[in-house]
C-alpha cells in the first residue's frame, strides 16, 4: 500500500497532464469539443471569481459584467481597429481591470453584502450599456465576425487547436493564483476574508488588498471573456445577462469556495452537464439554485473538498476526521457583528 501511495504521489501530476493534453482526441465530435472549450473558459472565470469571493470574501453578484467587458473590448479593438488578437486578449484584461478599479474606488470600503449589492447594480448597468450603446457594441445584434487568433502562422480556428490556447491560459491562471494565495498578498486576502477588522488590527491595509484582489480577479475574467469572444466569434449582450452571474456563482459554490481544483471542475462540469441534459431545458437554472442551497448546507467545501479527500486517500496523507469542519472558522458569528 505504501508503494502505491508513493507511486500515486509521483505520477498524479503526469497522469493529469496526459489526460488533459489528449482531451481533444477523446472528444471527436466538434460540437462537444466547443462545449469543452467553453467549459475551460468558465473554469478560468470561476477561478477568478474564487480569488475575489473565495479567498478575499468579496461576493460579486454581477461578475459576468467583467467577462462581458473583456469579450467586447477584444472584439471591438480587433474588428474595428484591426489590432492583433493577442493585443485584444491583453487589452481585454486591462480594460476589465480598469472598470473594476473605477468601481472599486468607492466600493472597496463596503463590507460583504453591500459590496455584493453594488456589483449587482454594476452588472445590471453594464448589461444595459452592452444593449443600448449601439454605436460601439452593436446593440442587440452584437458584433459578428470576431476573428480567431493565429499562432506563428497556424490558425487556431479549429476547436481542437483553440483548446490548447485556452488550456495554456488556464494553466497560467492556475499557477498565478496558486502563487498569489501563498504570497504575502494572498495571506492578507485570507485574513480579510476571515475577519476584516482583525486583519486591519494586525496591520493589513484592507482596502488596498481588497482592491488588489479585485483587479487581479477582473483581469482574469476579462481575458476569459476575450477567449470566449474569439472562440464563438460572435459577441452579443445575451451572453452577459445577470442570470449568467448566478451560473458562475453556482459553479464556484459547487466546485468549492476557496478551492482551485474545485473551481476548475465546477466551471467545467456545470458547463458540460447542461449539454448532456438538454432535455431538461430551463430546469437547468432551477437545479442550479437548489444545488447551491444544498451544497451550502450539506457540503460547504463542494467538489473541491471531495477532490482533496480522494487525493488525500490515494496519496496516503488522509487522516480520518481532519477533512471535516476546517472551514467553519467564523461559526456562530452573530448577525450584527
Amino acid at each position: 500500500m505504501k508503494t502505491f501511495h508513493k507511486l500515486y504521489r509521483v505520477s498524479r501530476i503526469w497522469i493529469l497532464l496526459l489526460i488533459v493534453l489528449t482531451l481533444p482526441y477523446w472528444i471527436p465530435n466538434n460540437y462537444y469539443l466547443q462545449v469543452a472549450n467553453l467549459g475551460m473558459i468558465f473554469s478560468i472565470l470561476t477561478l477568478s471569481l474564487n480569488i475575489l469571493a473565495g479567498y478575499t470574501g468579496l461576493f460579486s453578484v454581477g461578475f459576468i459584467a467583467f467577462y462581458g467587458i473583456g469579450a467586447y473590448t477584444s472584439a471591438i479593438v480587433v474588428t474595428r481597429l484591426g489590432w492583433s488578437v493577442w493585443v485584444g486578449f491583453i487589452l481585454a484584461g486591462v480594460v476589465s481591470s480598469l472598470f473594476s478599479f473605477l468601481l472599486g474606488l468607492p466600493t472597496m470600503r463596503l463590507r460583504g453584502m453591500y459590496f455584493a449589492v453594488a456589483t449587482l447594480a454594476f452588472g445590471e448597468i453594464m448589461y444595459q450599456v452592452f444593449l443600448n450603446w449601439t454605436s460601439i457594441t452593436g446593440g442587440t445584434k452584437g458584433i459578428k465576425g470576431v476573428p480567431s487568433p493565429e499562432f506563428f502562422g497556424i490558425s487556431l480556428r479549429p476547436y481542437s487547436k483553440y483548446f490548447y490556447l485556452i488550456l495554456a491560459v488556464l494553466v497560467i491562471v492556475i499557477l498565478l493564483t496558486r502563487n498569489l494565495i501563498n504570497s504575502r498578498t494572498g495571506r492578507a486576502m485570507l485574513a480579510i476574508r476571515e475577519n476584516d477588522i482583525a486583519a486591519e488590527a494586525m496591520g493589513v491595509d484592507v482596502p488596498k488588498f481588497k482592491m488588489i484582489a479585485f483587479l487581479i480577479a477582473t483581469f482574469f475574467a476579462g481575458v476569459a471573456g476575450a477567449l470566449y469572444g474569439h472562440e464563438v466569434r460572435y459577441v452579443s449582450p445575451e451572453s452577459f445577462v445577470n442570470a449568467e452571474s448566478a451560473a458562475v456563482l453556482a459553479m464556484m459554490v459547487v466546485g468549492g469556495i476557496g478551492s482551485i481544483p474545485g473551481s476548475i471542475l465546477g466551471g467545467f462540469i456545470l458547463t458540460m452537464l447542461p449539454e448532456y441534459l438538454r432535455f431538461l431545458g430551463n430546469i437547468r437554472l432551477v437545479i442550479y439554485g437548489a444545488a447551491i442551497v444544498a451544497i451550502i448546507i450539506f457540503a460547504p467545501k463542494g467538489l473541491g473538498g471531495l477532490i482533496e479527500w480522494i487525493d488525500g486517500f490515494l496519496s496516503g496523507t488522509l487522516k480520518l476526521g481532519t477533512h471535516k469542519k476546517s472551514t467553519e472558522k467564523v461559526e456562530g458569528e452573530n448577525g450584527h457583528s
Binding site: G57, F59, V61, G112, M113, A116, A243, A246, L249, A250, V253, I257, G281, N282, I283, L285, V286, Y288, G289, A290, A291, I292, V293, I296, I297, P300, E328, K329, V330, E331, G332, E333, G335
Partner: peptide
C-alpha cells in the same frame, strides 16, 4: 444555516432566489 457564517447564508439566499425565479419560469 441558522448558526452558519454570513457568507454561507448570503449564498443560500441567492440560491433560493435563482431557484424560485426559474421554477416559476419553467
Amino acid at each position: 444555516l441558522i448558526d452558519a457564517n454570513n457568507t454561507r447564508r448570503l449564498i443560500a439566499t441567492i440560491g433560493v432566489g435563482i431557484f424560485l425565479r426559474n421554477l416559476v419560469r419553467v
